[in-house]
C-alpha cells in the first residue's frame, strides 16, 4: 500500500439541492489523530458519517488501504468504526452490545477477552457490567459502552463524533483516556470532532475546522457572525462590536452572515490607543495560551461573551498575557472571508 491510510478525493455531498459538504482533497495518515472543530450545522457530522461509510456521498471517492470503499464494502468491515453523535445501544445486555461488532465480523478467537478489556478501557468493570441490561445504564455509562463496542474491534480507523457530549465529568475523563489508549495500544488512526477545541488541540496532530460545508486545514480559524444589510447587499463593517460577534444582536431585517477570520488575523493589544482606527475592536478575556502541535505556533484562546476565539501570538506576547486577563482583540474587516 502506498499513500495515506484513508484518502478522500473530490468529495461533494448534497441534501436535496443544497451542498452540505465539499472537499477536494483530504488524507488521514496511519496512526495520527485529527481533530475537527467548527460550529453546529457546519458539516462535521456529515463528514464523519461519510468517512465512517454510513452515508454514501453524492460524489467523490474514498480509498481505504488503497481500495475504493463505500457503505458495506467488505474490505472496511470491522476496520473502520464510528461512534456517531446519536449512537444508540441495542436492546440487549452490555456484553452483547460490546461484542456485537466482533460477532458481525465473525471474530470468535479472543472475543471474551476483547470485550472485557474494552470495558476496562472505558472504566467499566466487566464483573459488574457484562450481564447488565442497557436499560439499567446511566447516560454516561451508555456512551462508554457504545465506545467500548467500537474499541473491541481494534479498528484501523476510529471516527468519534462529539464523544464527550452530554456526559458527566467522570465519563468524560474515561472516554478521553480510552480514545488515546486506542492509538497507543493498536495504532488506531483517530478522527475526533469536539466543541472542546483546547482538548482537541492538545491531543491532535492536526485540527481541521469544518464550516459551512468546507474544511479549513491550514490554520486555526474563528467563525464570526457579521451583520448583513439586505437593502444595500453589503456587510456592515461600521456596526458595533456586539453586532459583529453576537448573532443574537443581528435582528431582522439585517440578519447575520457567518464569516471566517484566521487566527493570524486576530490581534491582541493591552493599549487601546495602539489599535488602528479602521480595525474592529472588542474587549475579551484570555482563557489560555497553547502551542499548536501542527504548526508549532503559539495561540491565545479568548472568550468574548460565550464565543471562544483564537489569536496567534508571538513568544514575547505570550509572556505578557495570563488566563483571566482582560485584553483588547481587533481585526481588519478586509481579513474576513465569507462563504
Amino acid at each position: 500500500m502506498t499513500g495515506a491510510l484513508f484518502e478522500i478525493r473530490r468529495l461533494v455531498h448534497r441534501y436535496k439541492d443544497r451542498t452540505v459538504l465539499e472537499e477536494e482533497f483530504l488524507d488521514l495518515e496511519a496512526g495520527t489523530i485529527t481533530g475537527i472543530s467548527g460550529p453546529n450545522g457546519g458539516g462535521k457530522s456529515t463528514l464523519i458519517n461519510i468517512l465512517g461509510l454510513i452515508v454514501k456521498p453524492f460524489q467523490g471517492t474514498l480509498t481505504f488501504k488503497g481500495e475504493k470503499v463505500e457503505p458495506f464494502s467488505p474490505v472496511a468491515r470491522g476496520r473502520i468504526a464510528t461512534l456517531t453523535q446519536d449512537a444508540s445501544l441495542l436492546s440487549r445486555s452490555v456484553e452483547e452490545n460490546v461484542s456485537y461488532g466482533l460477532r458481525a465480523i465473525q471474530h470468535a478467537k479472543d472475543r471474551k477477552a476483547r470485550v472485557g478489556s474494552a470495558l476496562e478501557a472505558v472504566g467499566l468493570a466487566p464483573s459488574r457490567f457484562l450481564g447488565r441490561s442497557v436499560k439499567a445504564l446511566s447516560g454516561g455509562e451508555a456512551r462508554r459502552v457504545a465506545l467500548a463496542a467500537r474499541l473491541a474491534l481494534r479498528p484501523d480507523i476510529l471516527l468519534l463524533d462529539e464523544p464527550t457530549a452530554h456526559v458527566d465529568e467522570h465519563s468524560n475523563a474515561m472516554i478521553r483516556r480510552a480514545v488515546l489508549h486506542a492509538r497507543e495500544a493498536w495504532g488506531t488512526t483517530l478522527l475526533i470532532s469536539s466543541h472542546d477545541r483546547e482538548w482537541l488541540e492538545s491531543i491532535s496532530d492536526r485540527t481541521l475546522t469544518v464550516f459551512s460545508g468546507r474544511i479549513f486545514k491550514e490554520e486555526r480559524v474563528n467563525i464570526l457572525a457579521v451583520p448583513y444589510d439586505y437593502e444595500t447587499e453589503t456587510h456592515k463593517f461600521g456596526g458595533t462590536v456586539d453586532e459583529f460577534l453576537n448573532p443574537l444582536s443581528c435582528p431582522p431585517p439585517s440578519g447575520c452572515f457567518s464569516a471566517i477570520l484566521p487566527a493570524s488575523a486576530l490581534h491582541l493589544s493591552h493599549d487601546p490607543d495602539g489599535i488602528p482606527a479602521d480595525a474592529v475592536r472588542f474587549h475579551s478575556t484570555v482563557s489560555g495560551v497553547f502551542l499548536s502541535n501542527k504548526n508549532k505556533m503559539l495561540y491565545a484562546t479568548l472568550l468574548f461573551r460565550d464565543t471562544p476565539l483564537s489569536a496567534r501570538i508571538t513568544a514575547s506576547q505570550a509572556g505578557t498575557i495570563t488566563p483571566g486577563q482582560a485584553i483588547y482583540a481587533y481585526y481588519h474587516p478586509s481579513d474576513l472571508s465569507f462563504r
Partner: peptide, 26 residues
C-alpha cells in the same frame, strides 16, 4: 424503531444481511 439503529449498526461496518437480521431482532 429508533431511526438511529441503522446508523448505529452501519457504524460497525456490518454486512447488509446482518443489518437486516439485527433490525428484525430489534
Amino acid at each position: 424503531l429508533d431511526s438511529r439503529i441503522r446508523h448505529t449498526l452501519m457504524s460497525f461496518g456490518v454486512s447488509r444481511t446482518r443489518l437486516f437480521f439485527t433490525t428484525i431482532r430489534e
